[in-house]
Simulated assay, not measured.
Amino acid sequence: MTARQTAGRPPLEGARLAFLGAGAMGGAVVAGLVAAGHDPELICVTSRTPATRDALAGRLGVRALASNTRAAQWADAVVLGVKPHAAGALLDEIRGQVGDGTLVVSLCAGLSTGTLESHLGPGARVVRVMPNTPSAVGAGMAGVSAGARATRADLDAAVALMSAVGRAVVIPEPQQDALAAISGSGPAWVFHGIEALVEAAVAQGLPRALATELVVQTVKGSALLLEATGQHPSLAREAVTSPGGTTAAGLHVLDERAVRAAIADAVDASVRRAAQLG
């Protein structure tokens, strides 16, 4: 991962990590790393909001630094957790502290590795990561892509980083926009569906608290069933659908309303918007 990594050493072991921007996503990854056993003394955090930075440091025992340049100079790997619009100025700020031995991992949605590299020196090693909000509860799904000079060890390090808060897959960078629309925006699609089912249950006379419990557990259980069995979703759906039964009647309405096409259009719109932002 860095100039100090030795052959056979697991990714991130003994690495000093600087999280520049300790907001919701960066904070979730830091918490996951500490819970997974990474020495909190080897993690430092910065934030534009001192209270956020200090609260995270106090809760997890990590270092809090006020200076991005000091944090970057201290670290073996820098993790960008700021909003995309703030990333360029931050990279310009730390450019002098990021040498050939420092890995830069970006959690900034939509920003290409080329854009990130343009703000750094010619030897900068950049890995782009697209995380999602379930990372906050250790159930995230992230896509990891290498920049022009990133190594296999750099990718392994980024995967290890995100595996502390869920799962991570290595993908070619051109697939990042599609992944962002599925796993990045995907929680919003799921929450939208959950909200619709809860409202439908309330309309049928169920108390809201009970409706929410029923829907959330049903969605969770359905996902776990697919994961445990490896069954294709269409086969799992057929197992619930008796000919002429109640489920079939409901599915007929969804097909009449072209729900599948609407979902495909929503994903397509999200991909096109991600390309524009990038």
Results as ranks from 00 to 15, higher is better:
residue 7 A to L: 15
residue 119 H to G: 05
residue 32 G to V: 07
residue 120 L to M: 08
residue 40 P to H: 11
residue 214 L to R: 10
residue 254 L to I: 13
residue 10 P to Q: 09
residue 211 A to V: 11
residue 110 G to S: 13
residue 120 L to G: 11
residue 214 L to N: 01
residue 158 A to S: 09
residue 82 V to C: 10
residue 89 A to G: 15
residue 13 E to L: 09
residue 196 A to D: 08
residue 205 G to H: 10
residue 144 V to L: 14
residue 143 G to W: 11
residue 226 L to C: 09
residue 241 T to F: 03
residue 144 V to I: 14
residue 238 E to C: 06
residue 18 A to Y: 02
residue 50 P to N: 08
residue 201 A to M: 07
residue 228 A to Y: 04
residue 7 A to W: 12
residue 10 P to E: 06
residue 129 V to Q: 09
residue 201 A to Y: 06
residue 220 K to F: 14
residue 275 A to K: 15
residue 31 A to L: 03
residue 74 W to C: 02
residue 255 D to L: 02
residue 223 A to Q: 01
residue 17 L to D: 06
residue 217 Q to W: 06
residue 153 A to F: 11
residue 148 A to F: 05
residue 114 G to W: 10
residue 275 A to L: 08
residue 84 P to N: 05
residue 237 R to Y: 10
residue 81 G to Q: 07
residue 47 S to R: 09
residue 175 Q to H: 12
residue 208 R to C: 05
residue 27 G to C: 03
residue 226 L to F: 05
residue 53 R to D: 01
residue 177 D to C: 02
residue 146 A to Y: 11
residue 21 G to S: 03
residue 14 G to W: 06
residue 134 P to R: 08
residue 144 V to Y: 14
residue 87 A to G: 07
residue 229 T to N: 15
residue 265 D to M: 02
residue 195 E to H: 15
residue 164 A to W: 01
residue 74 W to L: 07
residue 96 G to M: 07
residue 161 L to F: 11
residue 233 P to G: 09
residue 241 T to P: 08
residue 104 V to W: 12
residue 255 D to Y: 01
residue 30 V to F: 03
residue 38 H to T: 13
residue 198 V to E: 12
residue 138 G to S: 04
residue 214 L to T: 00
residue 174 P to I: 12
residue 67 S to N: 12
residue 39 D to H: 08
residue 221 G to E: 02
residue 83 K to L: 14
residue 119 H to F: 15
residue 221 G to L: 05
residue 188 A to Q: 01
residue 61 G to Q: 05
residue 154 D to L: 00
residue 219 V to P: 07
residue 77 A to P: 05
residue 91 L to Q: 06
residue 205 G to N: 01
residue 245 G to N: 05
residue 23 G to P: 03
residue 123 G to D: 15
residue 105 V to M: 13
residue 187 P to N: 00
residue 36 A to D: 11
residue 152 R to V: 12
residue 12 L to W: 01
residue 88 G to C: 10
residue 143 G to S: 13
residue 35 A to H: 10
residue 274 A to N: 05
residue 155 L to Y: 03
residue 124 A to R: 12
residue 223 A to S: 14
residue 190 V to L: 14
residue 31 A to M: 04
residue 95 R to F: 01
residue 206 L to W: 10
residue 188 A to R: 08
residue 246 T to D: 00
residue 92 D to L: 14
residue 83 K to G: 03
residue 17 L to T: 06
residue 137 V to M: 13
residue 115 T to C: 05
residue 157 A to T: 14
residue 160 A to E: 04
residue 1 M to W: 00
